[in-house]
Nucleic acid binder design. Structure first.
Length: 61
DNA sequence: GTAATTGT
DNA sequence: ACAATTAC
């Protein structure tokens, strides 16, 4: 089976303008030194096929 | 500006 | 090599 890697997140798809539940292709922490930062996910819009990045919840795996 | 990541 | 992502 294809590993589903990440659970779905509610994100705003900037290309379609719609709020959709998508599984990120990849997630990483974006944080300057000595600051908390945020988690960022890489997503692909099902509508347009365009890639975009968006914040994912802090408690995300 | 800074942090990491990656499609373009 | 650049853009974009968040928030401090």
């Amino acid at each position: 089976m294809m590993p589903e890697k990440f659970p779905p997140v509610k994100v705003k798809d900037p290309s379609s303008g719609k709020e959709v539940e998508l599984s990120p292709i990849k997630v990483w922490t974006l944080a300057p030194k000595s600051r908390k930062g945020v988690k960022i996910g890489l997503f692909k819009s099902p509508e347009t096929g365009k890639f975009f990045r968006a914040k994912v919840p802090e408690n995300y795996p």
